[in-house]
Structure formats: C-alpha cells, structure tokens
Amino acid sequence: MLDITLGQYYPGNSFIHRLDPRTKILSTLLLIIAVFLANTAVGYAALCAMVLFIILISGLPFMLVLKSVKPLLFIIVLTLVLHVVMGQGEHVLYQWKFIRVTEEGLRLGVQMAMRLILLLMISSILTFTTSPIVLTDGIEALLSPFRVIGVPAHELAMMMTIALRFIPTLMEETDRIIKAQTARGADFSGGNLLVRAKNMLPILVPLFISAFRRADDLAVAMEARCYRGGEGRTRMHQLAYRSGDVMAFVFAFAMIGLLAFLRWGPKLV
C-alpha cells in the first residue's frame, strides 16, 4: 500500500512543535528578514548558530533539515560558481581568459549561497514542526483581518483543508487505476515525452471523472451539514498564544535587532 505522508511533517512534542502556528509563520517571516539583513561573516555565523539552536530544541534530526536544501542544490551551486568565476571588483585573485576570480565575487557568491541555504532550512523547520492541518488554521487566522480588503481567508483555508483530505484518496485511486491499466497491458514506461504524455491519458481521464464526481458529492454533503461559508463559524480548536509564543517572538525580533546592528551599527573592530 502507498504510505502517504503529506507535506513533510515530522511529529513531535518539542517546544517548537507546541508553538502556535501563527507564531511559527510570523517568526519564520521575521527570521527571513534577518537573513536578508546579514552582510557580515559575524552575521552569517550568528544565523547559522541560531538555525542549529532551533534544530536542537525542535528534536529534528539535523540531516533531515539539511536535506531540505537538496531540491535547490543545483541553483545554489550555480549561483556560487557564477559569482566566483565572473567576479566583479578589483581584488583579482586569479585570472585565466574570461574566468576572473575576485575577492568581491567570492564573497558575494558565498553570501548568496549561504542565504539560500539558510532560507530553505528556516522555512523547512516550519513545515517539519507544524502539521499541514494546523498550518492551514494558522494561515486562515493570519489572513482573516484582510477579509475587509477582499482576501478570501476562509475559502482559501477550506480549499487547503479539502485538498489535504482528498490528496491521499486521489493518490490511492491513481495507484489503483495504474495497476488496473497495467494489468490490461498498458505501458507507462519508456518513449519520448509526447508518447509518455499520451500514455498518461488512460490514467488522467478516469481520475478526473472521479474527482469531479467526488467534488459533487462533497458539495452536497457539506450543504447537508449546514455549511454556508465562513460567516458565523466557530472552531473546535481555538488558536491561543501562550508564554512560549511570546518567547519565540522576542527571540525572532532579537535576531533582527542583532543583524540590523551588525549591518548598520558602529563597527566593532
């Protein structure tokens, strides 16, 4: 059977896991700002130490978080290489034909790469420690003040909830259809892109028909259960800030303060 874990939630009960999702989303944004403020070696060192510290108290395996860099590894390496070999600036360290390695280029390349790595790791800590369902609640709560300017906060959250509910079901169904078609002799491997796309049709068509049928059924079932949009709705799990959330915010703002000081403050040395 398919083992479907949605998103990349890594269940646990750490301090970080227990934070309110709104706190985690907002703190993540604050820390991302902090990353963009960094422009000194000390600043980057502080950010790395911070990420290590958060990973430590969240109980996540370090390698797990590091792996979140993988999807963008190519871009990171490319950024680094391009900056290094096409260096701008006058302190030339090495030159061969059009390849020009400068101190400034080297610095900029490492900085960009560090930035990307830190951003990926920080945002993946959010999704590792928050289940998608709780994350949805957090997003809805954070967006709801913007309803007055027309942001459909509840509708977006409802869509995410239903997607979370039905993705595993549709994946099981895809699996079933593929097996059924394979049993009838369909071949899903090989061929060029066009052939492969054409081979997917016998899977996609029944899948879409069934998905529309499900959507129809679900709409009726929701109506039968008094669904009428977000107006006047209550929630079983009310979000609530606790003392830990205050600590997290203080920490995130302190990081911004530190990085801002390192950037604009009086030079220490």
């Binding site: 509910r165 079901t169 499900r214 059924d217 009726v220 079932a221 709705r233 209550t234 079983m236 799990h237």
Partner: peptide, 28 residues
C-alpha cells in the same frame, strides 16, 4: 450518503465530526 469517502471533509476524524457544529456556530 452512500460513498464513505466523499462525505468526509477534514483530514482528521474529530475535525470532521466538528464540521457540522462549527458551521452553525456552536461555542468551543
């Protein structure tokens, strides 16, 4: 309804059971 899959809204059992009363504004 007939199809067990197509009437469950939420990705957690208790959240789904809460869906109806949430809609009519039952206090937490």
């Amino acid at each position: 309804f007939q199809n067990p899959d197509n009437q469950i809204v939420a990705a957690i059992v208790e959240e789904d059971v809460a869906f109806g009363p949430e809609n009519i504004g039952v206090p937490t």
